[in-house]
Simulated scan of single mutants.
Amino acid sequence: MDNSPASWAPAPAVLAVAWLITALASVGTITTAVGGDPRGAILFGLVTLVAGAFALHSTLVRPRLSADSRGIRAKTLTGSVLLPWGITRVRLRTTRRLGRDGVTLEIEAEDRLLVFGRMDLGEDPRDVLDVLSALRAG
């Protein structure tokens, strides 16, 4: 593998569905409010808020994680942070919840711990770890 940069973000299809749900839920909020159903409007409003927050976050922090020969760059709502390879420790964590194994990628650097799941990365964290290991070694 070469030293070209790699990046990961939520899948575009997931992002599109989140924005579609936000739009449909906002229409539902308005329709139920105008129709005189305040409880329905509150429920649709909550769905709009949650789906919109997810969609906005996923849009603003693209790409969520990137890496090159210098190190790893993670993007958050407060900005991005560059973590040089020399101070980072990357590992997988498997957790069993509701009868299923969930795999997350953990990146530890000094006093920071960043955790990324499949939804954050758009692909399996195990595959991302393989690419990160190759970049680090290269």
Rank of each mutant, 00 (worst) to 15 (best):
D124N: 10
T32Q: 15
A51S: 06
W19Q: 10
S133F: 10
T22L: 02
R118A: 13
A23Q: 03
A13I: 14
F44L: 09
R64C: 05
L105D: 02
T59P: 03
L113E: 01
D37R: 08
R96T: 12
T31K: 07
R126M: 04
A74N: 00
L105I: 08
G79S: 07
R62E: 06
I30R: 12
V27N: 03
S26Y: 02
G35L: 05
P63Q: 14
H57W: 13
R91Y: 00
I30H: 12
A25G: 15
T31G: 09
L113V: 04
R126K: 06
L56M: 15
S58E: 11
I72D: 05
D124P: 07
G36E: 11
P12M: 06
E106T: 06
R100I: 14
R118M: 13
V131D: 13
S58P: 08
L121R: 08
F116S: 00
T94S: 13
L24H: 02
L43R: 07
W85T: 05
G79C: 02
T88G: 06
G117S: 03
K75S: 14
E108F: 00
A53Q: 13
S133H: 15
A33C: 12
T88E: 15
F54C: 06
G117W: 03
D111N: 07
V14R: 11
A33H: 11
V115Y: 01
S80D: 12
T76I: 10
D130Y: 08
L132Y: 14
S80G: 09
P12Y: 01
T94D: 13
G52A: 08
L121M: 13
G99A: 04
R97W: 13
L105N: 01
L114C: 04
G28V: 04
P38L: 04
R70K: 11
R91W: 01
